[in-house]
Write a protein that binds this DNA or RNA. Structure first.
Length: 307
RNA sequence: GGUGCCAUACCCAAGUGGUAAGGGAGCGGUCUGCAAAACCGCGAUUCCCCGGUUCGAAUCCGGGUGGCACCU
């Protein structure tokens, strides 16, 4: 079993920055990190994969020359990932000397794990999970729910949510076999959490503009390249837009409704991110509707005194 | 100008005399190891407007307005 506390920390995470997709995290982080002499630790499940830079709006090569970045594009597109694996990667970054880090990203679960750590729980077991998924398909969720209830107190959301049901049952069965798993310490205990607040109409129009920009800078080619070397069951295809673009890969022009549905999914994702931030991370909100300069001033004032 | 068809929420839409289905969008929420995932909750005191018939009208009748189609 892995040890709860891994390598010694040679640097620390001074603050966390979240916000909906398109709220301007990447750009702001770059400016502030440069001004304060920090490096950036990405907390983004999509941007952490290689080959998805355009569609996930990852920091550019130029950005990464200006400021030291970590955990961007360092994971294979078809690699399995998890919160715990993310923490392993982050821990590795912390065990090497370097500037203090600003953790930035849209994957709130990653941000939360950095700040709060994780309690002990058995690691996922792919074989068991596969088995349970098949059982779910053949027997239905009620049967699995009963099994789960017989093993202890199930999480309330497992009743209706198949993904959560499978995980909860997997966990319960592994615990019964004696698998304990290990808890994970917070890598950024007590670090302040900031989040960019952009009003919805403004965010929506930014997302629309960003989608056009992504397509103009070759998103479709990125998808074609990915389709050539990555099986269509790989996790990377779950990122917004990738599956839709792969399906219309051979069409000369992108159908209007594909565009529209990518935009819709992105808006819905942004809304979920804000819900999570609001209710789980309780961040200090930084108004970010204004010009980049104004937002930078605002944020600079907010982080004044940190580090 | 004439004739016909249509008008129900932001969009699509069921309902054809008994008290407004459903889907999408949007909004809110859940989530202790797949999270850009998966899942849950919320919508019309009213059916284009005015009048009439009826115990009762989104539904029937008359008029108006708007849209579509065809004809001239």
């Amino acid at each position: 079993m892995e040890c709860a506390n891994l390598g010694n920390r040679r640097r620390r995470i001074v603050a966390l920055l979240g916000g909906a997709t398109g709220s301007g995290k990447t750009r702001l982080a770059l400016e502030i990190a440069q001004a304060k002499g920090w490096a950036i630790l990405s907390a983004d499940s999509g941007q952490s994969r290689a080959g998805l830079a355009i569609g996930t709006a990852a920091p550019s090569a130029t950005d990464m020359e200006r400021v030291e970045h970590h955990l961007v594009g360092d994971l294979a597109p078809d690699a399995e990932d998890s919160v715990a694996l993310y923490l392993d990667r982050a821990d590795r970054v912390l065990s090497n000397p370097g500037p203090d880090l600003l953790a930035v990203g849209g994957t709130n679960q990653f941000l939360q794990a950095l700040r709060d750590g994780m309690s002990a729980s058995p690691a996922p077991d792919p074989v068991l999970r596969q088995e349970l998924s098949e059982r779910l398909r053949s027997r239905g969720k009620d049967v699995l729910w009963d099994e789960l209830a017989a093993l202890g107190t199930p999480p309330h959301d497992a009743r209706t949510n198949p993904v959560r049901l499978v995980r909860a049952l997997e966990k319960a069965l592994l615990v019964r076999r004696g698998v304990q798993g290990s808890s994970r310490p917070a890598l950024a205990p007590g670090a302040p959490v900031f989040a960019l607040a952009v009003n919805r109409p403004e965010l929506h129009s930014r997302l629309e503009a960003r989608l056009a920009a992504m397509l103009a800078s070759g998103w479709r080619d990125e998808v074609r390249a990915l389709a050539e070397r990555v099986p269509d069951t790989a996790p990377c295809w779950k990122c917004i837009g990738y599956r839709a673009l792969r399906e219309s890969m051979d069409l000369p022009d992108l159908p209007e409704r594909t565009l529209r549905s990518i935009l819709e999914e992105t808006r819905q994702y942004a809304k979920r991110q804000e819900t999570w931030l609001r209710n789980r991370l309780a961040p200090r909100w930084v108004p970010a509707d204004g010009s980049p300069e104004a937002v930078l001033r605002e944020f600079a004032a907010a982080v004044e005194g940190i580090s």
